Measured scan of single mutants.
Amino acid sequence: ASVAVIAAGTQGNIFATSALRSMRFLQILRMVRMDRRGGTWKLLGSVVYAHSKELITAWYIGFLVLIFASFLVYLAEKDANSDFSSYADSLWWGTITLTTIGYGDKTPHTWLGRVLAAGFALLGISFFALPAGILGSGFALKVQEQHRQKHFEKRRMPAANLIQAAWRLYSTDMSRAYLTATWYYYDSILPSFRELALLFEHVQRARNGGLRPLEVRRAPVPDGAPSRYPPVATCHRPGSTSFCPGESSRMGIKDRIRMGSSQRRTGPSKQHLAPPTMPTSPSSEQVGEATSPTKVQKSWSFNDRTRFRASLRLKPRTSAEDAPSEEVAEEKSYQCELTVDDIMPAVKTVIRSIRILKFLVAKRKFKETLRPYDVKDVIEQYSAGHLDMLGRIKSLQTRVDQIVGRGPGDRKAREKGDKGPSDAEVVDEISMMGRVVKVEKQVQSIEHKLDLLLGFYSRCLRSGTSASLGAVQVPLFDPDITSDYHSPVDHEDISVSAQTLSISRSVSTNMD
């Protein structure tokens, strides 16, 4: 405001104040949320940038038409019409005319000016109207692209899951042992070998009828009888010197917790746990005396209480009078009846079946994303299906024409109403129809010849004498029936064969 007042002088105070007050009108834009329509302006900018070359070309040609039209109309009207006294007036008329506004304040009066105005109007309006069409088509394409992008975003994750499931299904095939990355992934998420051994031990116990592997080994086996189970490696608790092959000598807290839970599941009659010990102070733990958990001091820290809870689970003690015997301790020893080589084939089979199920689920979810969402998608899918159906029908028609023997030239002739090819031409065609016709002709010829021969033979049998045999009239074959199959017997006289037959029969009768 200060700059405006200084620039306008003393009389500019009122002007500056009114100008600043008129800017209050811009507050109405906040009512229509114009300040939060950044996406709309961004869309407009992207459309203009995408079609910038077309817009520049249309505007450039339109500007050239405007300059030439205004100049030529000015030359034609400057002497006869006072409205075109300057080139600026003519340029104003050209702008209003070519933009199809047409105020009518300035019009050419001479015939030359009117002809020039009409010609440049028809030429220039087309170029001035091009930017509107370019922007409209650009907006339509952009909206369609955003629509497809939205659908693509919805299909991206199911497609990625389907590709991942397909690759993992491919890589978990037993015949592709060189693909090891997927197996490394499952090695990292699978439970430890100790848990798998416990699982298979329970399965084997159920197969043995509820007997433990130790009891199965204690059962008497006759001499020479084959053992029911192959000899396997035996594993004891981590306190002993022997372990399962492939295990580490260090046992983690999870393994100890699972070991304690498995020992508690063996039965309360074979294992008696004394009350857990509780320390009397955060600094020292008295293991010899058993106290109640309700006497825990409230001033303990979080670490002390955590250690106390761990001691409740991981440090059970047995009383002296209830101490288990050596046999019970041997039964409680952890027996590992299986090795990694025995378990891994079954584990890989389970993983393979899981990968198949996940692949089928991913495939079903991806197919669900291909379903249409709204009416536009339904129409688009219907149009695509219609085009596909037309293509299939056209391909089927082409194959039928190839089989029947109607080529493209014959199809055009039928469409024009011309006469089709004759039967002889159809026979000569190298097509399925021509071959079928040729075979039918040959079969008819053979059938006719057989009928003639059978009739001749029956007449010979009825006559009974050589004289009557020679008097029999043998009809000749019709050459038209034989089609294109020409037998060497067709052109010979059958009477010669009949005479030869009669001579042979007379000779045979004389010999008798």
Rank of each mutant, 00 (worst) to 15 (best):
K315E: 09
N303S: 03
S283T: 07
T266P: 04
P230T: 09
P408R: 13
T482P: 13
A310P: 05
I393V: 10
V296A: 15
A467T: 09
H386P: 13
I379L: 11
E425Q: 09
Q335K: 05
K416T: 03
S299N: 15
V378A: 15
D377H: 03
G391R: 15
G224V: 14
D374V: 01
R217Q: 09
P275L: 09
I503L: 03
S468I: 08
G420V: 06
A384S: 14
S261T: 04
T172P: 10
V203L: 05
H491N: 15
P268R: 15
S483T: 04
T398A: 11
P408A: 05
P226T: 15
P488R: 06
N510Y: 04
R237W: 11
G385C: 13
V507A: 04
V472M: 05
P316H: 01
H491L: 14
S487G: 08
L360P: 02
A274V: 12
R176P: 14
M259T: 04
G407R: 14
T234I: 13
K315R: 04
T180P: 08
D480G: 13
N208T: 09
G434E: 06
S319F: 02
K298E: 15
V474G: 14
S248I: 11
G417V: 14
H236Y: 13
Y178D: 12
H486Q: 04
R264L: 05
T266K: 15
G464V: 04
K295M: 04
Q442K: 14
K394M: 00
S468G: 00
S175C: 10
G405V: 02
D322A: 14
P421T: 15
S497P: 04
M278R: 13
P231H: 14
P475R: 06
D478N: 13
G239D: 09
R207C: 09
M251V: 10
D478Y: 04
G267A: 04
A384T: 13
I446L: 08
V361E: 08
Y229C: 13
G260S: 14
D490E: 03
K376Q: 08
E380V: 12
G434A: 07
D428G: 12
P275T: 12
V350G: 11
L211I: 10
H272Y: 05
D480A: 04
R264P: 14
V426E: 06
K270R: 09
T369A: 09
Q499H: 10
K441T: 14
D512G: 08
I494N: 12
E331D: 14
L338V: 06
H236D: 15
D484A: 09
S281C: 15
G391C: 12
V496A: 13
K315Q: 13
S261C: 10
K363E: 05
P231T: 13
I481T: 04
Q444H: 08
I356V: 06
S292C: 09
D512A: 03
F359Y: 07
V378I: 09
D342E: 10
D451G: 14
R459G: 09
G464A: 10
K416Q: 04
T369S: 03
I403S: 03
P488S: 13
R406P: 08
G210S: 11
E215K: 07
V437I: 06
S466W: 07
M278I: 14
D388H: 07
R307G: 10
V439M: 12
A424S: 06
L179V: 11
G420W: 14
Y373C: 02
D478E: 05
R307S: 15
M259L: 06
D173A: 01
V400L: 13
R305G: 10
T339K: 09
D341H: 13
R256C: 04
W183L: 09
I343T: 11
F359C: 05
A206T: 08
D304V: 13
K332M: 06
M389R: 02
D388G: 14
K295E: 15
I189T: 10
D512N: 05
S301C: 13
C460F: 09
T339S: 10
E331Q: 08
Y229H: 14
E289D: 14
I446F: 01
L476R: 07
K367Q: 02
V496F: 05
H486D: 05
R168S: 01
S353T: 13
R265G: 06
P220Q: 08
T180I: 11
L211V: 13
L370V: 02
M344T: 13
A471S: 08
S333G: 06
A320P: 15
R205L: 11
M259V: 04
Y170N: 11
G417C: 07
S431T: 12
L357P: 02
V287E: 11
K254I: 05
D490G: 09
L169Q: 05
E429G: 14
P488H: 15
S188C: 09
M251L: 11
F243V: 14
D493G: 07
S192T: 07
W167S: 00
M433T: 06
L501P: 12
I253V: 08
Y485C: 13
S422Y: 15
P282R: 04
P372A: 03
T482A: 07
L476M: 08
K295T: 14
Y184C: 12
L387R: 12
F200C: 09
D428A: 04
R459C: 10
E331K: 13
G260R: 14
V443L: 14
Q335L: 11
E289K: 07
K441N: 10
M511L: 03
M344R: 12
A413T: 09
S301G: 14
D451H: 14
P282L: 13
K295Q: 15
H386D: 03
P475L: 03
A346V: 09
P345L: 12
I257N: 12
K254E: 10
P191S: 08
T349S: 14
E429K: 09
Y229F: 11
S445T: 12
Y186S: 06
H448R: 12
L390Q: 03
D478V: 04
F308I: 02
T482I: 05
M174V: 07
T280S: 04
D388N: 11
F477Y: 04
K298M: 07
S269P: 13
D322N: 15
E425V: 14
V426A: 10
S325P: 04
P345A: 15
S248R: 15
V287A: 02
R462G: 06
L390P: 02
L370P: 02
V216L: 14
S242C: 05
S283N: 15
S188I: 06
Y373N: 04
A323T: 15
L469P: 04
D304N: 15
R392G: 01
P268L: 13
E425G: 12
T509S: 05
S383P: 15
L169P: 00
R258H: 05
D451Y: 04
A165G: 06
L501V: 10
F366L: 13
D255V: 12
P276Q: 04
I253T: 12
T234P: 06
G239R: 00
Q397L: 15
V203G: 11
Y186H: 07
S248G: 15
R313S: 02
R352G: 05
E415K: 15
T339A: 12
L190V: 10
K348T: 10
I257M: 13
S333C: 03
K298T: 06
L179R: 11
S506A: 04
E330Q: 12
S301R: 11
I257T: 03
E326Q: 03
S301I: 14
I393N: 02
Q499E: 09
A177G: 12
F456S: 14
M511K: 12
C235S: 13
M432R: 09
A471T: 10
A197V: 10
S333R: 09
S506W: 04
M389L: 02
P238S: 06
R411T: 06
Y457C: 07
G267S: 09
A413V: 14
R212G: 14
W183C: 07
P408T: 07
Q499L: 04
R256S: 13
N208D: 13
V436M: 14
T465N: 03
S497F: 05
E327V: 03
S269C: 14
